[in-house]
């Protein structure tokens, strides 16, 4: 257990660095745009808005899987929390399985979408002529990562069942510690 937590922390640190680099780059582009438009409007580039969108949107999509790992995707628990821990455990198994299936499906068709855009050779309308499939790639990558995170959670839940720990009240609420970890 100790070793896995360590690995999780390293992954999180790397992810934080990556997200920060993307967001700060977008922020730099916005500032650049404002300054240039005010002082040297003729030097204005036509591709900044587009790149800002690519950076910010892919940063958000890529962070989806750590939301799965920490069970931080928004949910309404007011009804399910009235159930017995054993029942809640099996409901959770079903939900997490659906997560695996849904995210895999979106990743699969997302891959098809990327290939389709690449085969048409669609480029952005700006002078950058950015190949849009690169941006589209963030969808299948995001959902494939989420699918794998759901799969790991599913295996953990089944492992608990195997050990007979699934009826303990704590077992059905594995989220709190993980969520705290993410918040730092």
């Amino acid at each position: 257990m100790k070793k896995r937590a360590g690995l999780g922390t390293v992954i999180l640190a790397i992810e934080n660095l990556l997200l920060t680099a993307m967001v700060l780059a977008a922020l730099a582009l916005i500032s650049w745009d404002i300054v240039i438009r005010y002082f040297f409007p003729s030097k204005l580039a036509d591709w900044t808005t587009e790149v800002i969108i690519y950076l910010v949107v892919s940063a958000m999509l890529l962070s989806g899987w750590s939301l799965v790992r920490a069970n931080m995707h928004v949910r309404a628990e007011l009804i399910v929390e009235r159930f017995r821990p054993g029942v809640r455990h099996w409901i959770e198994v079903i939900i997490v399985s659906i997560g695996v299936l849904y995210c895999s499906a979106v990743a699969w068709y997302g891959k098809a979408m990327v290939q389709f855009a690449a085969s048409l050779g669609i480029n952005s309308a700006s002078s950058l002529h950015f190949p849009v499939w690169v941006f589209y790639l963030s969808v299948p990558v995001s959902f494939a990562l989420m699918a794998s995170a759901y799969l790991i959670r599913l295996l953990n839940l089944l492992h608990m069942t195997h050990q007979g720990r699934h009826r303990s009240p704590r077992a059905s609420a594995p989220s709190k510690d993980d969520a705290a970890k993410l918040r730092g």
Binding site: P41, S42, L44, T49, A125, S126, S127
Partner: peptide
């Protein structure tokens, strides 16, 4: 509106194209 042709035309006018 975006597009290289529009931007090039504005350049020839001596005006600046702003995308928003």
């Amino acid at each position: 509106p975006g597009g290289a042709a529009n931007i090039a035309r504005y350049e020839s006018f001596g005006a600046t194209a702003i995308a928003m």
